[in-house]
Structures are given as C-alpha cells and as structure tokens.
Design a protein around this nucleic acid. Structure first.
Lengths: 245, 245
DNA sequence: ACCCGACGTTGACGTGGATCAAGCAACGTG
DNA sequence: CACGTTGCTTGATCCACGTCAACGTCGGGT
C-alpha cells in the first residue's frame, strides 16, 4: 500500500482525495477526513464486487459495515407481509451506503446491477464521525439529498399516471447515467440498469403496464430501444413533456 | 427575559432545556446548544401563531428563518404544473422546520391546523451549526427520521389499496397524537388534524374515495366518528389489520 | 331566521391499470 | 438438437378507483 501517494493526493490541492484500497474518490467520506484518518480507514477498508440480485443487508454485511458504491446501482426495497414490494431508493455510483446510528433499517439493499463496493467496518467510521465534524456534515448533506429524492418520488407515486411514471423513470435514469445530455433539446444514450420487474417495483406498477408504456414511448418515437435495455432518446425535451413536469 | 431561570434549567440536570422566548423544549435544537448559544438564540427568536392554511414558505418566512413547531401540524406539499398535489411530509409538535444549507426547497409548507411556532433567523442557527457539532448531529438525526418516514410512506403510496391507505393514515395519526395507545389491543382517541382534501392529497387518492373508505371503517365498527373529526378506535389491533401491515 | 359557503357523503357511471393468459426471443444445458 | 428458464410483450377481461353530479350538514354573517 503506497502511503506516499495517498499523502500526496491529500496535500497537493486538498480536494481530490483517493482511497488507497479501492483507488476511488469517496464522495461524502474521504473528502472530509484528515490524512491520518484516511490512512487508518484504508487499512480496514476492502474492495469487492457483487453480482446482480445479491443482497447486502440482513446477512450482517451492511449492518456491521458501511460502503461506498464504486460502480453499479443498488436498490433499497421494502416489502409488505404479503409480498408486495416497493423500491424506496436507488443509489448510484459515488453514493455512500449504510445507515448511521441505527442497525436495523427495515430496508433491504440489493444489487440492481453488478456492483463494486469499497467497504469498511461500522465501528471505524462511527469513531471518525465523533472526531471530525466535517464528516457528519457530509453525511447530513447526502441524507438531505436522499430525502429530496424520496419526496420527489412520492409525487410520482401518488399523483402521476402510468405513462408519466415510466417517462419520469427513464428521464431520471438518463440524468444519472448520461448527465452530459444537456437540458436544451439534447439527446441521450444509456442502458436501463434494471429489469422490467424492478422498474415496476420502483413505480408502483405491474410489469405488464411498464412494458405497455415503454412500447408506447417507442412507437411514438420518443425513445429508441435496442436489446430491451439500451435506450436512445433523440429529444430529451419530448421525454420531459411525457413525464408530466 | 429571565436569564437566571434559563441558566438553571440548563445546569441542573443538563437534559431538559427550555427556550426562554417560547418556553418550550426544542427537540433537535436547544438540547444541543451551550448555555451561551441558548442565550444568544433567545434574543433573536420569537414565538408566533399561524391560522390553518397559512403558508410558511415562498413568502420569505421559512427561507430566512428556521422554526420549532410548538403545537399543531404542518404539511409539506409538492405541486405539479397542472395543479395535482401531493403531501410529502407532516411535521408534528416538537419537530424542527426548515431546510439547512438550501434556500429553495421546491416544497411548500402550510399550516394544516392552527400552529404555533418559535422562529429564529437562519443566519444565527447556521453559525451555531458551524460552532457546535452536537447541533449538526441532532439535525442529522431528524433528517434520518424524516427519510425513514418518507420511505415508509412510499410503500403506502405505491403498493397499498385505498382501504389500506386510509387505515394506515388513521393509524399514523393515532400514534402521533395519542401515543399512549399501547400496541396491545388498546384503544385510542384523537382528532384528525386535516380535512378530507388534505388526507386525499396525502394518500394519493380523491376526497370521495377517502370518504367512502372512512365510512366503511365506521360501518365495520373499526372506528367511531364524531363531528367528522373526532375519532375513537376501540381496538387498535383491528385497525392495524386493515392497514395491511 | 335566513342564506351562504365550506366541507363531507352518497350514488351512477366510466376508465386506467391490474389480472389472467398466451406467446415470443434469447439464453444456457443435457 | 430439443428443452427448460428467464425476461419481455401483447391481448382479453375485470374491478378499484376516478369522475361527475346531487345532496346533506354544519357554522358564521347579516
């Protein structure tokens, strides 16, 4: 492990901090740590990959550790007693994963795609939180962002039609994965990171309805599909219109 | 203003801290402040009341100030361009109101009932946050709680039937307003703090559907209504069954 | 007392999306 | 190659909920 390089990355300009074990910037974590803390963290963190569908919680994986998502998409789901399921959140590439100050979240985290993570023990981070207030500030910011996203989605779940829901979903994915697609009449290309079943669970619909609405968007020329996963949006503004603002 | 009393409240056992201007405990704020900060805050905070339906945001009220809710219920709503509305959160008596680090929340806060608040300027609190890390910790805890509630409600919005939604709503209100109603077969009595229109906006339904489902709960003996607002739940467990877990 | 408006209930009817069911394409496996 | 499996689409039917409309009830103002 090259501590020299680590130190240099921290000291030269302060901002771009890299975790030595996974060689990635940790949004919300490393950026708020002192060089000493970062070194400590690096000694206990480890990089690993998960296949699609792999569960991250309930098997003592998340409960005892926090993770940064290096690539892929993680879905947070809640399930009713009779099996009805709802996805309550999606975490993308640089997000932080893990619930501070609470072991039981009643939420299941599952890999929606292949995922690679950089994990470290809960105890180490919890101690660092107590030591450096900047870290807590980062956590608060991410939590506020998640709260905003959750509330945005509540409007979609409660008040939009199936057609608007599906358009909103595609638009959200486009903005996350292909953020270069500017707001002004630009086009976008990306892969849907989830199955139709996942999309349905996210939108509070059935797979049949999702399929029909996607077909409609396709026949109307709003999107172009390839292999059921690869999406091309020739005109993002047209998609925005379908999403019901 | 009696600073002697204030100091005494802070010093004797540490925990029960009282704001001198509104004479109430402020969950999430005063409890994390030093005596000096509390004194400073008291000089700028002011207590006031708002009638039902009064807006707290968009008119420079919330943007430039934070508030503690002393009594009443505040609803947070989002509105689509065509007027469809969704309530994305409810804040009850000891909650903190106001979004740190962001002036534009795209959310409207309205008094759902008569509300009394204790407000103070954004700038004062923002400075105190920088000074005392305990305050930020409190904010993080409240934000996490709100996130949990939002995600619980997403399941209700996306996957529950109208009957289950209404039962879940009544149950949630019961637990907030009459928390003495123990989980084991106990009864509960309380007033619904919102109109049928608000309930509909909260549940993603129409007022007619809400009315029909309430009527059904009444004719089935799960609840007893009086004046359309006062509710008696003879057996909370029966209501829980209707809420679909 | 009267009216009025806000709020709530109830009924009749239409429809969006769920449900049930069939079929298709891509894939890996014996 | 036939075979099953998984993911997706499409069609036919049904029903939960929205929509439209009428009516009841309460409280406040003149």
């Amino acid at each position: 492990m090259n501590t020299q390089n680590l130190r240099k990355d921290v000291h030269t300009d302060g901002t771009p901090v890299v975790c030595v074990s996974c060689e990635a910037r940790h949004r919300g974590v490393c950026g708020a740590l002192t060089p000493e803390q970062l070194t400590t963290l690096s000694k206990t963190s480890y990089k690993h990959k998960l296949g699609e569908g792999h569960e991250l919680v309930g098997e003592a994986e998340k409960v005892e550790s926090y993770s940064n998502i290096l690539s892929g998409v993680v879905k947070l789901t809640k399930t009713l007693a009779d099996g009805r399921q709802q996805i309550v959140g999606l975490q993308f590439a640089p997000d932080f994963l893990g619930r501070p100050f609470k072991a039981d979240s009643e939420i299941t985290a599952q890999a929606a795609t292949n995922v690679s993570l950089c994990s470290f023990p809960k105890s180490v981070i919890d101690r660092m939180i107590r030591e450096s207030p900047g870290l807590e500030h980062k956590l608060l910011e991410q939590t506020l962002k998640e709260l905003d996203e959750a509330r945005d989605w509540m409007v979609t779940l409660g008040r939009k039609t199936a057609a608007e829901k599906v358009a909103s979903y595609i638009l959200m994915i486009a903005r996350h994965i292909d953020p270069e697609a500017g707001p002004e009449g630009a086009s976008a290309t990306f892969d849907l990171p989830m199955t139709r079943a996942d999309i349905a669970d996210f939108l509070g619909l059935t797979i049949e309805t999702v399929s029909r609405q996607i077909t409609k968007l396709r026949t109307d020329g709003v999107i172009v599909l390839e292999n059921n996963r690869h999406v091309f949006v020739p005109n993002v503004e047209r998609l925005e219109l379908r999403a019901g603002s």
